[in-house]
């Protein structure tokens, strides 16, 4: 038994030391719910999933270790290959995802008439569920939908936005970009607030034109924000497009809008080969792990713990 717990409390050490035994015990107790949830639903499933990916277990729980056979199978699975190609195409559009909101934020910051209105309205689609966005655009982007109707009014021929495999991925990306760019505008706006106005003003007095100030003064000072938006967007497009794919295109036509996260869902739904679905999950985890690690680093740097 500990003798001196209650009566003689040791003076609390201020710098770097730990609190009393009671304080420590209490801290662990307070962290228990958070840790338990994160471990039970995320960390242990991740480890469990890795082992699962090395087996050919069926629904009844019978199966053998198959080593990396599921991974080899993924490498030769045309559907998985297509989902990777789609991911590469998606990631190739990343500069637009970063630069469009940046440009809009700078224009608002520089005093576009009605800037406050734009800021509020641009963010609106970002609060809507991807299911709602997907449901609306599934009607709007139909061959006989309102977008083609509007284009027809200005003399542009109807385009099969969702039904042709050459357009569907582009449409999906455009809708996702449209629904999230407002978030980027907000983040850039709050970054611009930290750029001292006198630097911009000084450049103006020195005779720098609008575009010179933009590219030589403002954009360089936004570097940390650009970094952050790029990281967050990359994670976002790798892991938060499920709802939109599910409602808007269902991964098709064919595999043209199937991304890895949607393929995992399809494989999981078949239920007969969880090992294979787990293997694709692991590949997705490795793909985004590095990028997500950067986000965690940025966030913990900001907390200054």
């Amino acid at each position: 038994m500990t003798v001196k717990t209650h009566k003689t409390k040791p003076p609390r050490k201020r710098r770097g030391g730990f609190g009393s035994k009671q304080e420590q015990r209490f801290a662990y107790l307070m962290l228990l719910p958070a840790l338990a949830l994160v471990l039970i639903f995320r960390v242990i499933p991740l480890i469990w999933g890795f082992f699962l990916s090395l087996t050919n277990v069926d629904t009844l729980g019978n199966g053998d270790w198959v080593g990396f056979a599921n991974y080899a199978r993924a490498a030769n699975d045309p559907t998985f290959q297509d989902s990777l190609i789609n991911t590469v195409i998606l990631l190739a559009t990343l500069p637009i995802w970063v630069m469009l909101p940046m440009l809009l934020a700078i224009l608002i910051h520089q005093g576009v008439p009605g800037g406050k209105f734009y800021r509020a309205v641009y963010f609106f689609p970002a609060v809507l569920s991807s299911v709602i966005i997907g449901a609306i655009f599934s009607v709007v982007l139909r061959y006989d939908g309102s977008l083609n109707n509007m284009l027809g009014a200005v003399g542009i021929d109807a385009i099969d936005w969702l039904g042709s495999s050459s357009n569907a991925l582009g449409s999906l990306i455009a809708v996702q970009l449209w629904s999230t760019f407002g978030m980027g505008v907000l983040i850039f706006m709050s970054g611009l607030a930290t750029v001292p106005d006198d630097i911009i003003e000084a450049a103006r007095i020195d005779g720098a034109g609008f575009w010179q100030r933009l590219f030589l003064v403002i954009v360089p000072s936004l570097r940390p924000i650009i970094e952050f938006v790029a990281v967050v967007t990359t994670i976002g497009v790798l892991t938060s497009m499920f709802g939109l794919i599910y409602v808007l295109t269902g991964g098709g036509p064919g595999t043209s809008t199937t991304l890895p996260e949607f393929l995992i869902w399809l494989e999981q739904g078949k239920l007969n080969r969880p090992g294979y679905a787990a293997a694709i999950s692991m590949i997705l985890f490795v793909m985004m792990g590095g990028i997500a690690w950067m986000q965690v680093r940025i966030m913990s740097r900001n907390t200054n713990l």
Binding site: L35, P45, L52, S240, F242, E261, A277, L284, V296, L305
Partner: peptide
């Protein structure tokens, strides 16, 4: 710091990545 790190690092495990084992859990 370790516990803070574990909770923050679980950001790297979105539901898609653990879909099957999460469902089994």
């Amino acid at each position: 710091k370790l516990i803070f790190g574990v909770i923050l690092a679980s950001l790297m495990i979105p539901v898609q990545v653990v879909l099957v084992p999460f469902y089994q859990t």
